[in-house]
């Protein structure tokens, strides 16, 4: 077998021309539809992180120093400076600076009717970056303190940013379920809080959820990274009631 080169025969080109003509005709039947303004606005809303106040000026200055001015490559804070940070400033560092890269297909693009969907997974909190191993380890090892700082920050801003939600899932902070439900019920706007509740149930293999229709659709064999269920009152209530039952049944 030989790889085709520029010396293709004329009949093949003619055949491809016919094929192309047919394909163009077939595709012209549709027209492109842009996501509605509310869908686009919700996409932006989903991606917003919460910026913690603890030592923010100092942490921003440290991050500015480690960024390579020439090529914007990713560099972590050196270990000595990292270890010297007090816990609340380390928390700020983690919430505004991810040290590792995210791969090509990790960043969730905007989609049609995003504001009417409850997704199975969260978008990437740091665009083309993600937490490094030492950052993930910090979150897990300092879980109680981090949860406390997140609650304190959320109670001030009345919003749980994407970075906070990602941290809660990373830490498996199921103890925050009542707090998250109370927050969600304030305006019923941030469907990604419902996603966090479902991720808690999935990651802890909560059986009533694992055998549900929602689970199959969001995490089953035919699911993908953009799988969703439609937002409606029934789905909202079902997710919350299941999450409460899961929380109450924790050992």
């Amino acid at each position: 077998m030989k790889i085709q080169t520029v010396k293709c025969c004329r009949s093949s080109i003619f055949f491809l021309f016919l094929l192309l003509s047919f394909s163009l005709f077939a595709q012209e039947e549709g027209t492109w539809r842009q996501a509605s303004p509310s869908s686009q606005a919700y996409h932006e809303y989903r991606l917003k992180n919460t910026i913690p106040p603890y030592g923010l000026v100092k942490i921003k200055a440290l991050i500015a120093q480690i960024k390579d001015a020439d090529d914007d490559s990713k560099s972590p804070l050196n270990q000595k400076a990292y270890l010297a940070l007090p816990l609340n400033e380390k928390f700020t560092y983690h919430m505004i600076h991810a040290e590792s890269y995210s791969q090509n297909c990790d960043v969730v693009p905007p989609i049609i009717d995003e504001d009417k969907k409850i997704f199975g997974i969260l978008p990437d909190a740091f665009n083309e970056s993600s937490w490094s191993e030492r950052q993930a380890n910090f979150l897990k090892s300092q879980k109680d303190a981090v949860v406390s700082l997140i609650k304190e920050s959320v109670n001030r801003s009345k919003r749980v940013g994407l970075n906070y939600k990602t941290a809660l899932v990373e830490m498996n902070a199921t103890e925050t379920i009542p707090f998250l439900i109370e927050l969600y019920n304030r305006d019923h706007k941030d469907f990604d809080i419902l996603t966090v509740l479902m991720l808690f149930m999935k990651n802890n293999e909560y059986k009533p959820f694992m055998i549900s229709t929602s689970f199959v659709k969001l995490y089953g064999d035919k699911s993908d990274a953009q799988s969703f269920i439609n937002y409606n009152k029934a789905n909202e209530e079902l997710i919350i009631s299941r999450a409460i039952a899961f929380y109450n049944g924790r050992k």
Binding site: D71, D72, K74, Y101, Q103, N104, C105, V107, P109, E128
Partner: peptide, 11 residues
């Protein structure tokens, strides 16, 4: 689909 990544990321 179109993937995106940092210009200096090596995977």
């Amino acid at each position: 689909d179109i993937g995106r990544v940092s210009p200096h990321a090596s995977f």
